[in-house]
Each structure stands twice: as C-alpha cells, then as structure tokens.
Design a binder for these strands. Structure first.
Length: 597
RNA sequence: GGCCCGGUAGUACAGUUGGUUAGUACGCCAGCCUGUCACGCUGGAGGUCAGGGGUUCGAGUCCCCUCCGGGUCGCCA
C-alpha cells in the first residue's frame, strides 16, 4: 500500500553528507536500490539523484510490526526514512561507496510507493539493450550514469545562458509553428485546421527569425532552440535536436569567432575543468580537406594525407592515369609502424571499407622487413618509390594506403580511413579536447540531381569580399564567410556572416538558379524586411546535443537526450508517431493515401 | 533507398556437424540467517529460440521472406 507523505519533509539528499554530519537526525527520501535481508537486520541502499546512502532496519530498535513492514521492501520501492546518521567503523565501512562511512539507523519510515520488478536492473552495470532501455526510458534515466549526463547537459545550457547574458545577449524565443523552407532538409509539416490544405512547418533552425531580430535592433540574440529535420537518423543526428543559437549585429567574422572562443573556454573550464588555450587554431576548408580529408578534422592525432599526384603524373598504372585524366588526384595516408598490424584479410576488408565512400579500391604498400610488398609493385619505378618514400615519410615498418580518384572520393575515403586506422592502432588520445575553426568554406556546391548550384551553408551566407566578382563568372570557386567549430572530429557548431545587401542577396538567389519570383515566393518576407535597413550581421549555432555528448564522453547523442528517438524516427516509449482518429483527420481536411498495416 | 552487424527465460549470454527433456549467470518467488555491502545457504518458478514459409525422418541450428534494433552510405541549406 502506498502511504502518504503526511507532512514529512526531506531534510537532506542521500549523498550530501560528510562524516562530520554523524549524529544528526535526518529524513531522506528516495528509491530502494539494493536490499540485503539478514533475517533480523535489513540493509537497503537508498538512492536519489545525488547518490546512495545505506539505511538499516534493525529488529531490536523497530517494533515487530514496523520490522515486518521493512521486510516487504523490494527494489525500486519509494521510501521516506527518518533516523540517526551514524558513523560506520572498521569492517562496517564500505570503501566502494562515497557515503560508505555513514549509514542511517531507521527509527521511522514510510513506504510511499511499491514497485513491480523492473525489466532491467537500475544500475550502471546494467547491460540491457538500448531498445529496452528506451521503451522504459523513465527507468533508464534513474541510472546514475544517465543522471550524470542529463545534469551535465543542464550545466552546459546554464553556462551558455550565463555567458551570453554576461556578453549582453538577449534570449528571445522564435516560433515553432512557422513556414516551410524548401531549401535544405525535409520539413516536418503541421496541418492547419482553420486553413484547409495549408501547413505550418517546424523550424529546421531559427535562421530567418534571428536575422530579422537583427534588423529589429536586438543587436545580440541567443536562444536554446529546438530544431526539427525530417532526415534519417545517425548516432549524432535526431529528428528533433537542440541548438545554442546566436546572432550579432555590426560584426565581422573575427568578432563572432572571438565571442565564441570566450564561450568555449568558459564552458570547458566550468564543465570539465579543462583549460582551452586561445586563440583556437584555424584551418581553411581547403587545407582541412588536403591534410585530413575532412571538413571536420580530428586533430588529436597526425597521419595526415599526402598528395602523390605529381609523383605519378607519368605513371603507366591505368588507375593512376584515369584519376589524373578525370581531374582527380592520388593521395595517401601512412600508417607508421603498422606493417605487421594487418593481415591480408584485414587489408582486403579495408579495401571494402573505402568502397563505402565510392572509392573503386584501396592500394596498399607494406614495407616489411623482408621487402616492399604491394599489389601494384610491378607498375612502380624505382624513382617513383623513392619519391613516395620522401613525400609520405614512408619507411620500413610502415603501411601506405593510396586512393586515386576524383578529389571528392579521395578525400571522403582517405578521411574515413584515417579515422578507422587511428582507432585500430590506438592513436586517438581520449583525454584531449581539440577545438579547431574551419573557415572559408565554398559558398556553393554543385547539385548533380538538380543540375544547379545549392548553398553549402544556406542561401543567406555572405561570399568573401575578394571572391565577389566570381559569383557570376565562376560560382563554384567562390568562398564564403562561413565557419564551423570542430571538436575532436565532430562538427559541434557552424555559422556565417550573412548577406545584408538586397542586391547581393538577389545575386545569390540567381546563382542558386531561382527566378526573382521564386525567391520572392519562398523568402519574400525576408526580402521585404531587408528593404528597411538590415545591419551587417552574422552568427553561429551549436549543436547542444553533440556538445553534451563529447563533454560527457558518450558516443551517441541519444545518451544525452532524455527521451530520444530510434533509427526509424519513432519513440519506443510513447509509440510516436501513431495513427490518429478519423475524426481528427476529418477536422484537418486530411486523407491518407498510403498507410502501413 | 543501399550495404554491414544483431534478435534464444525478466536481463545478459552459451548452445558443437541438424539429433534425447534448450543450458549458465544475475534477477524473481519461498524458507533460514544481527553487520551485509556483488551478502550467504536451501529450495522453486520462469522459454512463441523475433514472426512467417521452406528443406529434412528430425530445425534454436540450413534456405527464403517479413518485422525490429544498431552502425553506415545516400540524405542532413
């Protein structure tokens, strides 16, 4: 039977005690973590969000009735206990528990709630699979590790509010029900009851609103904003996720970076007590690609790419010839000292791995003690080998991996291979937090499917001043005032200086292949607004989930989101998304053309 | 949409070449125990081997399909 609180007040959390508190009368409330029944003596670990405290029910000091009641306590029963905090001495001390030198000798208690046996053990030792954990997420969230993650996430959000407030930013909310933006990710749509056939869209980001706020004079804005994208999930992607979003007026790129470096320094100081040295290192996009094969390089280890294109310019090997003829390149990563780390089978598996990234194959050169081994040895001249050795510091004991293809494929495959090799060879230091800015992104990206350029960042990103004139003549080579902040190989944020000139914005829309009418239809309200004095502005948005993931040492953002969704974008706990009553659909003027069984 | 990995008591796993009644640990239930702390001891209950179809004298095991989960490519301005 559930008992009522009956006026009892908690005096303390379970784990907020020191031995100096011994002798105090306390009232604790929490969940029974573990019960050890010795017959005439029952030990229970009481758990709340601070930790554990052992409580003792003694048949000598309790009435027979109360003791019998204590014997009914099971895991996850909710208890309120009153008693004396007593010091444990000698063998009674539990050295594995933070509060192991103390326990509460219970004089009075209430069983506030009983509990059925949980589907899995509420403990960090719990090995239950993630689907089960997510179905019973409310139980999973009781586990100390999850509580730690959720509290850390709170701390990050709190530091952000504190820092940006101190920097004179104003937190402003923007709408969740808004207008569909056809560029970019797929929108989640919400039907309108009062406007049959019309739909709201959930925001992919507060981008347009924050730019309008700059025009409205709010100068420095931030928001911890929920965003929605109807795209496939990943370990680091959820359909609804949270950004720490900010925008500033009367600034240039350097100003945005500076204020954010201050934030990151404070954040790492206050969450992990880690010193971040400023200014943060920067890499131009082009350099990041050339050195790491990625626009989000993990700089915690070396193994940088080497360009071998010129060495093989006259090679007779057809794979190399073809790559060069296609305007591509031949590049390599060198796994130093890994000569004996790979079996033939593993080398073949790496070949399959790079095919994931559209590479046609992976060429390896293994410089073993007994001599150089490579499937393409017969195509290589002495001079070429010597030049490769020099260029890639390729020495005895190393394995060199080469991909020859168009640049996009070379970078994608070697960038991924570099990470995979480093992981296998144990080259990635776990305790390092390497932040790096990647700057000067291309403004545009050729979209094969639609046979037109699309914005790499978004259509409001400003081109770099020195590339402006190329917008008409050579759009693909125009660089943008866009920047990403990368932490240990994860893009944790990105932003840009925006276009604040109507004329330039129109030019940009044309470069994207929009007619003026299309631009007006899609972004008319922004275009209209920009007739009324938009200030120069720019900003940045962090992925709060990813930031929390890395700071908490997790490998999936699901571990730092209280109620995440699984890969098919459903929620195992609530069952969302789900069918609705015909009546609801009728009211919304919606008919479904295709439904699952 | 593609590729890879996985699904066996409540949980985590084992299950040989296809062969008797599908095991182990933890958890759970009952009994005993006054210093346990991974408590201990005794006994017990608990299985749609993800679902469907096929091969076979015989399928947890082999084949096909479906569902579900994870990773990833595409996708994610």
């Amino acid at each position: 039977m559930s008992e009522l609180l009956g006026g009892w007040k908690r005096t303390n959390y379970c784990a907020n005690f020191t031995t100096a508190d011994a002798g105090k009368q306390v009232t604790l409330m929490g969940w029974a973590n573990v019960r050890r029944d010795l017959g005439a003596l029952v030990f229970v670990q009481l758990r709340d969000r601070t930790g554990l405290m052992q409580i003792v029910f003694n048949s000598n000091t309790l009435s027979a009735e109360d003791f019998a009641r204590a014997c009914t306590i099971r895991s996850e029963f909710v208890l309120a206990v009153r008693g004396e905090l007593v010091l444990r001495t000698g063998d009674m001390v539990n050295k594995n528990m933070e509060t192991g030198k103390l326990e509460v000798l219970v004089s009075e208690f209430k069983i506030l709630s009983e509990s059925e046996t949980t589907p899995f053990e509420i403990s960090d030792n719990c090995k239950a699979n993630e689907l089960l954990r997510l179905k019973y997420r409310y139980l999973d969230l009781r586990r100390p590790a999850m509580q730690k993650n959720i509290v850390m996430r709170h701390k990050i959000a709190f530091v952000a509010r504190e820092y940006f407030n101190d920097q004179n930013f104003i937190e402003i909310e923007t709408p969740i029900l808004t207008k569909s933006t056809p560029e970019g990710a797929r929108d989640y749509l919400v039907p309108s009851r009062v406007h049959p056939g019309k739909f709201y869209a959930l925001p992919q980001s507060p981008q347009l609103f924050k730019q309008l706020l700059m025009l409205s004079g709010y100068d420095r804005y931030f928001q911890i904003a929920r965003c929605f994208r109807d795209e496939d999930l990943r370990a680091d992607r959820q359909p609804d996720f949270t950004q720490i979003d900010l925008e500033m007026s009367f600034v240039e790129e350097e100003d945005v970076l500076a204020v954010n470096e201050g934030f990151l320094q404070k954040l790492f100081q206050e969450t992990l007590d880690v010193d971040i040295q400023l200014p943060l290192p920067r890499l131009k996009y082009e350099e990041a690609m050339a050195r790491y094969g990625s626009d989000k390089p993990d700089t915690r280890f070396g193994m940088e790419l080497t360009d071998l294109t010129s060495i093989f310019a006259k090679s007779e090997f057809s794979v190399f010839q073809n790559a060069i003829a296609a305007g591509g390149s031949i590049r390599a990563v060198n796994a130093k000292g890994a000569s004996s780390s790979f079996s033939r089978k593993e080398l073949d598996a790496l070949g399959e791995f790079v095919k994931t990234y559209r590479a046609k194959g992976l060429i390896w050169m293994n410089d073993k003690a007994e001599g150089l081994a490579s499937p393409i040895l017969k195509f290589l001249s002495e001079d070429e080998i010597a030049a490769v050795r020099k260029a890639a510091s390729f020495e005895q004991g190393d394995v060199l991996f080469i991909v020859a293809d168009v640049d996009k494929t070379v970078f994608a495959s070697l960038g991924a291979l570099r990470l995979k090799l480093a992981d296998k060879l144990g080259l990635i230091p776990e305790d390092k937090f390497n932040l790096v800015w990647v700057t000067q992104f291309p403004l545009l990206e050729w979209n094969e499917e639609e046979q037109r350029y699309s914005a790499m960042h978004h259509p409001f990103t400003s081109p770099m001043d020195e590339d402006l004139e190329k917008l008409d003549t050579d759009p693909g080579s125009v660089r943008a005032k866009a920047y990403d902040i990368v932490l240990n190989g994860v893009e944790i944020g990105g932003g840009s200086i925006r276009i604040h000139s109507q004329q330039l914005q129109q030019k940009m829309f044309r470069a994207l292949g929009f007619t003026d009418e299309q631009a007006q239809y899609r972004f008319g309200f922004l275009m209209d607004a920009f007739r009324y004095g938009p200030p120069p502005h720019g900003g940045l948005a962090y992925g709060l989930d990813r930031l929390a993931m890395i700071i908490s040492g997790c490998t999936s953002i699901r571990d730092v989101i209280a109620f995440p969704k699984v890969q098919n974008a459903s929620c195992p706990m609530t069952g969302a998304p789900d069918y609705v009553d015909d009546k609801q659909l009728l009211e919304l003027n919606i008919a479904c053309t295709n439904t699952e069984e």
